[in-house]
Amino acid sequence: MTEFFDPPPERDLPARQVTRMRAELLSTISRPLRRPTRLRVAVVAATAVVAVSAVLLVARPGLPGAEPSGGFELVAMGPSELSPTLHRSVEQCLDWNAQEPLHTENSAERGDASGGGQPDGASWPAVTVDDLAVAAQRDDTAALLFLTEAGYLTCDVRLRAGREPTGGLGGAAHWPQRDWLPGPVQWLSLGSTEPDGGDVTVSGRISARVHRLVLEHGDGGSTTSRLASGVFGLVTKGAEVNQNAELVSYDADRNEIDRRLLFQGDRGLEHCYVDPSGQIVYPPTTGEDEPKLEPALAADCRPAERWTSSG
């Protein structure tokens, strides 16, 4: 039946694209498990933050800005802590972002398939290096988080000698939930070397009552996150983080105040969260692959926690 809202006729995928896509997919899934010399970013999500302090060289202490010759990891909490390689990563991300045709809040202009449901997720903000909140690096791959007054930008970038940089951007130019967290902690950028596991790179936001944040790997190991100005960042090295990994938040008295699965995160909120007026700030979702069709009831929600860059 022909209807007034019929789409155009179907088209074939161009043959060369089929070949390319198939080759890339097979090459990607064929990656051997856990080969330390070849880092794979498996998942990278959204962003936030504001900055501060010093470079953390995980497992290999050194001077800020120094880069060991072999594989290494570091977390820089702001532009003042950037290593030379992270500087190049930041420049690459800024360059990509500048090439984006629009920095608009109109999702329709960008063909946002989420339509009217996500007016916040329309596009990415224009950012500068001063907006950098967290930069996390493992070997030749970096995950960056920029935070502006209204939105955020995430960028993952892989720089290899003699090869074209690869990576991607994410974020929102307008972010209605900027002032609120779904509980004490919210990751915004998550990278892993294996699907839901391996070594991970995580950054995000914390509320003022979080004084310590630990990633429990799920195999008995753990990694303590760096915290600064309402933001956290962590990188694991040689870890066996698994699907049961949890982010555990502690208050100033070392009491555990929150525990949540890392690989559920804010993309798969089990609960909804409301602000003090009872308005739902974060509706529940079931993750990136599962539909959530039923509306949330505010009465069943948990309190959202206010976020400020002062932590």
Binding site: V43, D112, G121, G170
Partner: peptide, 12 residues
């Protein structure tokens, strides 16, 4: 859809 771009980043 935006992260589809990011997914591309992980594709070899």
């Amino acid at each position: 859809w935006r992260s589809a771009r990011r997914w591309r980043a992980l594709l070899r």
